[in-house]
């Protein structure tokens, strides 16, 4: 009977170990999610009394131009950003993985942007965009960079994009490098013997074998870029003319101080559903690609 009792004991110990952790997770993750969903059905301003308004916040979201603009900006930023980040970091990883000198020093330097905080990096770039680049433009008489791009309603998002890409490339490059290292050298040798050129080798061997890593990177960078906040805070504060207001920033701005607790909660619920949907679709798509190979 002894083994049975010890098994029971083991099960009980495991339960005692996991229950407090699950409670902690529930209290600070699931509970606020439920509270948020609850407030999204009210006209709560963040203080005072409130009434139930049913789905009205959700209907209002559809006609709110500021909300639409924030979605347009965020998606434009995330789509262009994800493509740029993945193209640049794949090229960089290929270069850093080839027969070069100072390999580990170079890898070390290219990784630096990833360890720096987005807020401070934003402040530094803000200065470069506002003073250095226009100064270069004036000295060498290049008209299109004489004004700060952050002050231009149509171009400010590119400034935010440059900073976002600058930081995100570092992380994705490291992941691509570790992906490249999983490809055995004899596969390359075989393709060389078969007379495959560089481009052919890349398309037929490197790319397919990197698929799992491309999938990780796509999901990671899309998710991170959709949640952009720090850089907005330090570069533009959503301006000029709300042209760089990201979804997270709008929820923070108007939900916390703007008296739109209920309305922005509805916005946050929609945002959450979108992120889950996009991540699931991306993983499905890249998984299929992997299976085909």
């Amino acid at each position: 009977m002894k083994p049975k009792r010890s098994l029971l004991n083991k099960n009980r110990t495991h339960l005692m170990m996991i229950i407090p952790i699950v409670i902690l997770f529930f209290v600070f993750n699931t509970l606020p999610l439920i509270i948020g969903a609850f407030y999204s059905l009210t006209n709560y301003r963040g203080y005072g009394s409130f009434d139930f308004v049913g789905g009205r916040n959700y209907l209002d979201l559809l006609t709110d131009t500021r909300v639409w603009n924030s979605y347009l900006f965020t998606f434009k930023y995330a789509i262009v950003g994800t493509i740029l980040v993945n193209v640049i970091s794949l090229l960089l990883a290929l270069a850093l993985n080839s027969r070069i000198k100072f390999k580990s020093t170079l890898r070390g330097i290219y990784f630096i942007p990833n360890i720096l905080g987005g807020l401070i990096v934003g402040y530094i770039f803000s200065f470069i965009f506002t003073y250095i680049i226009p100064a270069v433009g004036q000295t060498f008489n290049i008209p299109w960079i004489q004004d700060s791009i952050l002050a231009d309603e149509n171009l400010a998002w590119i400034g935010v994009l440059i900073v976002g890409v600058w930081q995100a490339v570092a992380m994705n490059t490291i992941i691509y490098i570790s992906g490249l290292q999983t490809i055995p050298a004899d596969v390359y040798e075989a393709s060389k013997i078969d007379g495959a050129g560089t481009w052919c080798t890349f398309r037929k061997i490197t790319l397919p074998m990197l698929m799992p890593f491309i999938s990780i990177n796509l999901v990671l960078s899309t998710k991170n870029m959709l949640m952009v906040f720090d850089q907005i805070m330090s570069l533009t504060k959503g301006g000029p003319a709300q042209s760089t207001e990201s979804i997270s920033y709008l929820i923070y701005r108007n939900g916390m101080d703007g008296g739109q607790f209920g309305f922005q909660s509805a916005n946050a619920v929609v945002f959450f559903i979108l992120i889950v949907t996009i991540s699931v679709i991306q993983m499905r798509m890249t998984n299929k690609k992997e299976e085909q190979l």
């Binding site: 996991i18 699950v22 997770f25 209290v27 600070f28 993750n29 509970l31 606020p32 999610l33 509270i35 948020g36 407030y39 963040g46 998710k223 959709l226 949640m227 906040f229 979804i247 997270s248 929820i251 923070y252 939900g255 916390m256 607790f261 922005q264 909660s265 946050a268 619920v269 945002f271 959450f272 992120i275 889950v276 991540s279």
Partner: peptide, 23 residues
């Protein structure tokens, strides 16, 4: 439990932020 906790990865801070401040 595994899927319950791991799916927390997809919950953006933006949705938790306002309720968490109250909590």
């Amino acid at each position: 439990l595994y899927f319950y906790i791991v799916s927390g990865m997809f919950v953006p801070f933006a949705i938790l932020m306002m309720p968490l401040v109250k909590e």
